[in-house]
Design a protein around this nucleic acid. Structure first.
Lengths: 349, 349
DNA sequence: CCTTAGCACTCTGGGCGACAGAGTGCTACG
DNA sequence: CGTAGCACTCTGTCGCCCAGAGTGCTAAGG
């Protein structure tokens, strides 16, 4: 729809826009026509650049802090810039090596790998990294156990991809060792079914059994529900937040506080990420006010799904100020997601 | 030793110091002699207060931003203030209810309780909350299992207090189902021993068994080692960091960044907390430059251990700016630690 | 000897005007 | 259509002044 209103820019306008974005990202200062004329190598004078800039401002791609200041990109400007970027953004050699080095270590626990990836991304980009682990819904269960802890009981569920969900509950009355063994055996039937299917099966099983057993099974079902349904379980991972505190020269204190607040609220943040990732593209970029939440904190989010074959597992990404080095950030996220997908595919066999 | 150099202040000097600290914490502005004379109810004129203030400055408890500004407390000033505080600081009714409400919920998983306590503390104090879970060293093992995940193998250790440690490894060659069952049975001997003792036992067992089994057992020992020795396992919990971003009006950007950075580095932060908590007091307060790290970020840390009976389990606390509401913060930390200790004692039976 | 009133002194912060510099927008010309 | 040139506008800074806040000191009084 925005496509309709903002038709293809001329080649030179695009070049000017790109130059403005890149210079502004680099220096953080409004960009003057003269510096573009000098550095961008377009072979035209500053006056011509000024005309182009005025036109770009008219079209909504640039703004003015005040009359006699240079131009800075608007969200729309960044959007055009990002869309016109070549797909295969390049990384510095050092960055490539960092990524390669990380994935050379043989870590086989997906959760550990993701934790590391978050760190990796935040180091690559100097923004905050984030990761959303696979939802358990479709994950086959390898084992369910009831562990007797004395006065309490631990329900333990192990998934095919290495996730472990646990819940500790007060041991219901009238539950003894024999009964636990019995229920435990019954739970073994669920091995191999997915978290989702197992929930349905449990409800059926619960209906059959005696009162005490029913209570137990319902608790198990609850554990699975929590594991699949977010709430306290959907533990999104965030790292490198301190980068934002330093980097964000221009962010006002209040803006920064709100950003941090949201990053701490898993549920809210997951909602935002779901919105952004719903397009199922290989790389999603959301710039400033394009999303109501990110608009609030003048931030951009770049995410990419990682998958085995064609099925999406989870998401990784970075959060940074709108004035972000999109080229590097996009390339980093894309590269890490690619490696993660390869690794996941390998683990899956 | 500081005790030696700074002898007991007179009663009035103490009162003036307290008034300055409290007013400064409240308003964030340097405090003038006149406002103390008016509000502190000491029944003397501002000139007298001025004399006292000059003396306090001489002694190192107060400073001056510049000649004609009011006084602000130094770290030493805060220290004296804190030490002279009555032990049973009081909380507002609303805060009491918040704490009572939280502990009224029947959560029996220590880890969950701690996560909640961190949130609770950050809401009570408006600073960042933190918690260090019990070390596994002395915790009895309830169960050790080897879970066959296809190409990989998960080592799973469950502790008496509800902790679950896992490590996923590549399945060593020459390991088949029968052998897993066999080793699994052998591992059952370790049930009931502590994480620490189990490590020693494993090394002995490993020496006896065949080559493939030895490799397995060594991996198990490694899992236990990681669980007891910090590294990636000692997952300190931090929450409410966004409070600091807003609250810290006076903190410079750079200071804030460093603080956040340290909060993200578990190992470093754990080191600081260990230093602070080593006194084994019921409540530890470290103010600004009293610790080299906290000095760097102009912050104070308040911690308290929680225990069952006499054995310390872990630590909770808050981190805030030196200009902190010590009264409330100390009372909050003390109250939450007390409740946690009660809860832990209860769970332990 | 301690307290206090009074006063001179100092430093900050805001308001004001002037000014240099940066950058634009426009016009007129090739 | 591009460009040189120029008038115009706005910011940031500097110096200045002034009001206000708060101190330090002195001298007088209990």
């Amino acid at each position: 729809m925005a496509e309709r209103e903002r038709p293809e820019l001329g080649q030179r306008k695009s070049a000017v826009l790109r130059a403005v974005v890149e210079q502004y990202v680099h220096t953080g200062e409004p960009v003057s026509s003269e510096s573009i004329a000098e550095h961008a190598g377009l072979g035209v004078s500053s006056a011509t650049i000024r005309n182009e800039m005025a036109a770009l401002e008219e079209l909504g791609y640039l703004t003015h802090p005040h009359t006699s200041a240079g131009r800075i990109p608007t969200d729309v400007g960044y959007r055009h810039y990002v869309d016109s970027l070549p797909a295969g953004g390049r990384l510095r050699e050092a960055q490539r090596r960092l990524i390669a080095g990380y994935f050379a270590e043989a870590i086989v626990d997906l959760e550990e790998v993701l934790k590391g990836s978050v760190q990796l991304l935040s180091r690559l980009t100097q923004y905050a990294g984030l990761a959303v682990p696979p939802s358990a819904v479709e994950e086959p269960i390898v084992r369910i156990e009831l562990v007797d802890m004395g006065p309490t009981l631990m329900i333990l569920v192990i998934g095919q991809h290495g996730r472990v969900d646990k819940q500790v509950i007060d041991k219901p009355d009238r539950v003894d060792a024999a009964m636990l063994r019995d229920t435990d055996r019954r739970l073994q039937r669920l091995h191999g079914t997915t978290y989702l299917d197992a929930q349905a099966s449990l409800l059926r099983l619960a209906a059959e059994g005696g009162k005490a057993e029913r209570e137990l099974l319902l608790h198990v079902a609850e554990t699975l529900r929590i594991a699949t349904q977010g709430e306290r379980s959907a533990h999104m991972m965030v790292g490198g937040v301190s980068n934002l505190a330093g980097e964000a020269q221009q962010m006002r204190r209040e803006t920064l506080r709100r950003l941090f607040e949201t990053l701490e609220r898993e549920q809210e943040m997951l909602g935002v990420l779901t919105d952004i990732g719903s397009s199922r593209a290989d790389l999603n970029v959301t710039i400033g006010a394009e999303h109501p939440s990110t608009g609030q904190w003048e931030a951009s989010i770049i995410t990419a799904p990682f998958k085995t074959g064609e099925t999406a597992l989870g998401t990784i990404g970075v959060v940074g100020p709108t004035r972000m080095d999109y080229l590097t950030a996009m390339a980093s996220v894309r590269a890490v997601a690619k490696r993660l997908s390869e690794l996941a595919t390998e683990l899956d066999q």
